[in-house]
């Protein structure tokens, strides 16, 4: 198990380094269109082949990894922090505060957030650079993606509120703030971590779906989500199975995250 963890950690580090130094590693710019060789098979120049517009898939995968590996966890972190605040306080405090917070969470979950995102995109200025549209996309994902996690965390906090050690701490005269920070939150860490981890691939895939609705990372920037959209063209995938690379990389990276960052490590 230890070896597996080490291998996973080494793989993640390798992916991060590759993504970070993509500019040095890739033979051609990610946006350059080799129009004479669209849908090309893997070769020395194009290690994974090219996409429909003749862009190098390996370059796009590395640059896409940089974007997705930095921004999906960032969005997930934002969503988890909001969920921890809302769910943790509601669950620990209980009473009317819990009812209001849970009501707000249910409302947020019942909102047609996809349409809210569309509305948000419709009011954004048109001349946003691809980088700005990227940041906005993931920030919106973080702001809209906290509600489900908040419910889970609230349930966890409620369980802790009535636990023996919290009662003991209260009986010893600890303040509510101290109990929350020193007793409740450390015990919520596994739940928070699980929510953080679950949200990463969800946000990557959501970004891919948003692309279809016009809210994804805009051209010519690549992202894992955008690359996964390339799998829609199944005949192209059959012709060049290397096109599955973004999907495989996503699966392996998420698995490695789970192996490296075990929940036990976060237990108090």
């Amino acid at each position: 198990m230890k070896l597996l963890r080490r291998t996973a950690a080494a793989f993640l580090i390798a992916v991060f380094i590759a993504a970070l130094f993509a500019g040095v590693l890739v033979p051609v710019p990610y946006a350059k269109q080799f129009r004479d060789s669209p849908n090309a098979m893997p070769s020395r120049i194009h290690l994974l082949g090219t996409d429909e517009l003749g862009r190098d898939l390996f370059s796009r995968l590395l640059y896409g990894s940089r974007i997705s590996l930095l921004l999906a966890p960032a969005a997930s972190l934002l969503a988890t922090i909001i969920a921890a605040l809302v769910g943790g306080v509601a669950g620990y405090a209980g009473g009317w505060l819990e009812r209001i917070a849970l009501g707000g969470t249910d409302l947020a979950m019942s909102l047609p957030w996809l349409f809210l995102l569309l509305a948000a995109r419709a009011v954004l200025p048109l001349n946003l650079s691809p980088a700005a549209s990227l940041l906005i996309t993931f920030a919106l994902l973080g702001f809209f993606g906290w509600a489900a996690s908040a419910r889970v965390i609230c349930a966890g906090a409620r369980g802790l509120r009535d636990s023996d050690f919290v009662l003991q701490a209260k009986a010893c005269g600890c303040s509510s703030r101290r109990v929350l920070l020193q007793q409740v939150l450390p015990n919520l860490r596994p739940a928070l971590f699980a929510q953080f981890l679950i949200s990463i691939p969800v946000f990557i895939l959501t970004e891919a779906n948003l692309g279809i609705l016009g809210l994804g990372v805009s051209e010519p920037l690549p992202s894992w989500g955008g690359l996964l959209r390339g799998l829609e063209n199944w005949s192209a995938v059959q012709a060049n199975p290397a096109r599955l690379a973004p999907l495989l990389l996503l699966l392996v990276v998420v698995s490695c995250f789970q192996l490296v960052l075990r929940q036990e490590d976060f237990a108090p």
Binding site: L118, E219, P220
Partner: peptide, 30 residues
């Protein structure tokens, strides 16, 4: 948004216009 051919045409026009120094931002909307 969602029209693969138009999105690809826009990406190609973006690169064509780059050659004459024009910066084109692509916005796909519902």
């Amino acid at each position: 948004a969602g029209n693969k051919y138009r999105e690809q045409m826009a990406a190609m026009i973006q690169q064509d216009l780059e050659q004459i120094g024009v910066r084109l931002n692509i916005v796909t909307l519902d």
